[in-house]
Design a protein around this nucleic acid. Structure first.
Lengths: 192, 192
DNA sequence: CAAGTTTTTTACCTATCGGTACGTTACCTC
DNA sequence: GAGGTAACGTACCGATAGGTAAAAAACTTG
């Protein structure tokens, strides 16, 4: 029964192109023209495949979270508390100051999209951030080796705050190696 | 010789209104209509008094830095190293999660304005951030009580990173009291 | 009061924004 | 091959973006 002209582009690679653009220029700094140019499709194709700009961004954010941002969940599988935090901090540095990717974190830049049309987008980013922190808190609650001076919730919040700071620094132009040193210093202060 | 119609508004209070709007909605999320409405003047008056949107923002940023942001420079006058860092961190919490001001830091949100028309604005913000960190580094270099495990430059960078993280958390909706606890935990980890 | 100066107001400019109507093209099924 | 279906390209929509031209209004100086 179905038929119809087949799609001339791959939806996943198109999403990856959109991710690159949103990541580099932010939600508000990205126009539909930027998107269609990068994705290699026209506006009607974009709308048919992904909905409007907001919905496209939601799909892009999801792809970001379980692509480049997947380290954040995977870090929780590390055996020791120290290793979990190391992987989170080092992962944040690598993600936000990578060589072949835009600088900064999509989830952090999107929190700062505060124009009238960016409400939904900001909410999406805030929700993703809350989920990530809650996961870390649960991991720390069940840790046998958490230093006794820390409450899980408080440490989880602080670690996420430090990772946010790293993302800001990366977005402001600080390079990977310098950020790595900052991260290591933070880890030492927290755990030694 | 000079004469002319007198200005019907006060330039400084108009700047304060513009600051409130830019702070709340970001550079890219703020339109000239938003600005003129908040400032109580029309566009031609705005252009005559402050130049274009970019120049207005630069003036607003300067006003922000030595108004709400002045704590950052004043903190350096504290007698002890610990007190300097305390005042910086607590100041960041109060600034970014204040009751009567928008949440977040203008300087941090502006780093995330990455659209095509926001180049100059982003550069302004980055420059202000660099200056602030350099001032802290110099203060720590001349400190007699800097814990020996720290290099001044590295600690300055880390403290500013933590303050950036606090600003992000505030922009994402975390409240003042929670942020204060996060800041105190960071201070304890750094200095105890 | 007249001349000169500066601000204010209104109305408008072009470019671009996100989003869509519509006719054409390419495919599958019969 | 004919008919149905879905994506394609083009050309367009109203709204709004940042920015400005020009005349009316309010002041100072002579």
């Amino acid at each position: 029964m179905p038929g119809g002209r087949p799609r001339s582009f791959d939806a996943d690679t198109a999403l990856d192109r959109a991710l690159e653009v949103f990541w580099r220029h932010g939600y508000e700094g990205t126009s539909l023209t930027d998107l269609t140019a990068a994705m290699g499709i026209n506006k009607p194709s974009l709308y048919a495949a992904f909905g409007n700009k907001e919905e496209l961004f939601a799909k892009v954010l999801a792809r970001y979270l379980d692509g480049p941002g997947a380290y954040s969940a995977e870090a929780l599988d590390a055996p020791t508390c120290r290793e979990v935090l190391e992987r989170l901090v080092h992962g944040a540095v690598d993600l936000t100051a990578g060589q072949n990717t835009p600088h900064g974190c999509l989830c952090v830049t999107s929190v700062h999209a505060r124009g009238p049309d960016a409400h939904a987008v900001r909410q999406d980013a805030v929700a993703a951030r809350k989920a990530g922190e809650a996961a870390l808190r649960r991991r720390l609650e069940q840790a046998a080796d958490l230093p006794s001076r820390y409450e899980p919730a408080a440490l989880a919040a602080l670690v996420h705050t430090i990772c946010d700071g790293i993302a800001v620094q990366a977005a402001a132009g600080r390079g990977h190696d310098e950020l790595r040193q900052i991260g290591d210093l933070a880890l030492r202060a927290l755990l030694d």
